[in-house]
Design a protein around this nucleic acid. Sequence first.
DNA 1: TAAAGATTCGAACGAACGTTCGGTAACCTC
DNA 2: GAGGTTACCGAACGTTCGTTCGAATCTTTA
Lengths: 234, 234
Amino acid sequence: MALQNVETRFSGEALDGRKGRTALPGADEVADSRFDRRLAKLLYHAAHIFCEKGYEGASMRDLSRAAGMSLAGLYHYFDSKEDLLYLIQKHTFRTIIERLQERLKDAKGAEQRVRVFIENHLEYFLANKEAMKVLTHEDETLKNGRGAEIRAIKREYYKICLDLLEDLRREKGLQFSGRLAVLGLFGMINWIYTWHNPRVDLDAGTMAEEMSNLFLRGVLNPGKTKRKTVKTNA
Amino acid sequence: MALQNVETRFSGEALDGRKGRTALPGADEVADSRFDRRLAKLLYHAAHIFCEKGYEGASMRDLSRAAGMSLAGLYHYFDSKEDLLYLIQKHTFRTIIERLQERLKDAKGAEQRVRVFIENHLEYFLANKEAMKVLTHEDETLKNGRGAEIRAIKREYYKICLDLLEDLRREKGLQFSGRLAVLGLFGMINWIYTWHNPRVDLDAGTMAEEMSNLFLRGVLNPGKTKRKTVKTNA
DNA sequence: TAAAGATTCGAACGAACGTTCGGTAACCTC
DNA sequence: GAGGTTACCGAACGTTCGTTCGAATCTTTA
């Protein structure tokens, strides 16, 4: 059941330095060892289970069942349940940032670059719904070191978006709060996992275009709709 | 520790028919019985704990500790942990809808009515962050009957917003997808619990105004920014 | 003030949890 | 094909979980 593309999802840098393995295999060595491939499949199944039941609600026995491996056998591939969540989040975040930077290389103009950001996010989001839900829904679950590391990557991603929007503001001579714009945009595009239905809703590309239009018009146009708000007693 | 305003938060219809109690107390009877007030405090503490640790991650022993009541004593007030979540979600949703309908009574014009919707949502959201996070973060946790009931209220709230936006579309002669607009808006205003910091961010009223401007400009303005999206290989 | 009901508690239940341990089987290298 | 490493498993550990039960205490009513 769609396991053949797993290796392309969970592979590479997320698996470095695991369980005392050599972090940098020699050039002649196969990049994805047997160990890496098996771990990737486990991460894939774990993402699905965490997505469905939540991190706390999911049990290692659920994963053992889904992966067709004994409970004890799982611990050959990672240290703990918490480590499992960490690996999923780190790999997912790193991959989406990596792809974004690749795409931004040949995007000209501040507006177009914001569009690329939204399109990249939505495309990856809808193609990897489970992992992305785990990334966003469980973003306060990890504590201490692992949590700090994920939060640092999150800030990095936030910063990229903020810079793009401030470039846009500068280029067009606009006035808006960068923080509010970024977080409003993140809300729009991260909330999707709560409602998106592939049988009803548009595909990623079209949805990215629609959301980009909605957001960019809101940011680009002058505030002529501004009005005094209704005050009520507390 | 701020317990004196709890009664106004968790009271009224959420407590009807609990544990065989009379659903409709006589007019001469005090509306909030001793039982109701104690339950309201428990719901208040439970909301805080569910907010902090998540529904699955929180234990009844946590609640017992926070409420200063024995573990067994809790079960005098509700049937189960699941029931607890149900009561919190139902009361929170019902209250926000109730307040909205009150405010919409004297709001004229489609645009103003949308602004009232956003302002009501954000004001209640930021004043009751914990309960609102429990409402949005745990929206797939309840199953079967209780889950279906909450989902029905959610659809009701969604429908109110959709109608407001379609009124706006009609009044201004615009073209946009109502579904995408509603869900984009919900994303913006529900995502707030993940980042809002009262020491850094604006107050509810100002934030509602800013978000209303961002959203309404996006919806109201013609799609002159539309552009072909960049296609990439799969 | 005695009976009746509402409220609270300590103690325990069985089930499920994440993790570990010792051992067995498969695999790779020489 | 022997020896060492990798992969995997059954069984169990200690802990925590939600919930229950019978008794004790408080509150209200007659």
